[in-house]
Simulated assay, not measured.
Amino acid sequence: MQPLKRFTQCGSLTMLFGVFIILFGVSSTALTTFGKTNNQPPPTQGPIIKGRECNTNDDCSTTERTSCVKDPSDFKMRCLCGDDTPPSSGVCLDVLKGLRHRCHSNHECEDGMVCQFENTNRTIGVSKFMSSKTKLCLCDNDNGYVEDILHDICSGANQQYAVSLLISICTLLAPFLFSAHMSMRKHF
């Protein structure tokens, strides 16, 4: 038994020594980079790309998938893609369109919006000069979504999210509450 005992002790020491080598090897490479100065120059930023300024959606007809909407960075009217970004090399990605973007069907608009002609009687926001001949992604008023002019979004989604969340929680808890009620009923 004595040789076996020595062998296991040596094996443990060898394994422990191997772990120390691995840990020291990893930490020593990390320590060699600590304190070194960065000799690389900082990356240069390219020019900030903005969409072309516009007054109506007709001004944006030369660039596909753009609409004349308010730029979130400087609040100027510009030809922007559906996600309110400027076109990259004159091309927009095929994304869901945000508030007041040109559209052909409801499937092109974000959740809580419908593709419809603008009610020309309204005079809030930018709607007073937009053409009523063009369908736009607008807030779905029939389902409780209302245009928030300050943030340029459709509000009401938070209320529906809260209701959906409450229903989901109640659905998950119902079996537990029912079984607790039944077990308490057996005891009394």
Score class of each variant (00 low, 15 high):
Thr8Asp: 04
Gly11Asp: 05
Leu16Trp: 08
Phe17Gln: 09
Val19Ser: 09
Ile21Leu: 15
Val26Tyr: 08
Ser27Asp: 04
Leu31Tyr: 12
Thr32Ile: 14
Thr32Glu: 13
Phe34Gly: 06
Phe34Val: 13
Asn39Tyr: 12
Pro42Ile: 02
Gly46Val: 12
Lys50Val: 14
Gly51Asp: 03
Thr56Asp: 13
Thr56Trp: 08
Asp59Lys: 02
Cys60Ser: 08
Thr63Ile: 15
Thr66Asn: 03
Lys70Trp: 00
Met77Lys: 07
Cys81Ile: 03
Cys81Asp: 04
Gly82Phe: 01
Asp83Ala: 12
Asp84Asn: 15
Asp84Ile: 01
Pro86Gln: 08
Ser89Thr: 09
Leu93Arg: 12
Leu96Cys: 03
Leu96Phe: 08
Gly98Gln: 09
Arg102Met: 09
Ser105Pro: 01
Cys109Glu: 09
Asp111Cys: 00
Met113Gly: 01
Glu118Asn: 07
Ile124Cys: 06
Val126Ile: 11
Ser127Cys: 04
Lys128Gly: 08
Ser131Lys: 07
Ser131Thr: 11
Ser132Cys: 00
Leu136Lys: 12
Cys137Gln: 08
Leu138Val: 12
Asn143Trp: 02
Gly144Ser: 03
Tyr145Thr: 02
Ile149Phe: 00
His151Thr: 05
Cys154His: 00
Ala157Glu: 10
Asn158Met: 09
Leu165His: 07
Leu165Tyr: 08
Ser168Leu: 15
Thr171Met: 11
Leu172Ser: 08
Leu173Gly: 03
Phe176Ile: 09
Leu177Arg: 07
Arg185Gln: 10
Phe188Trp: 06
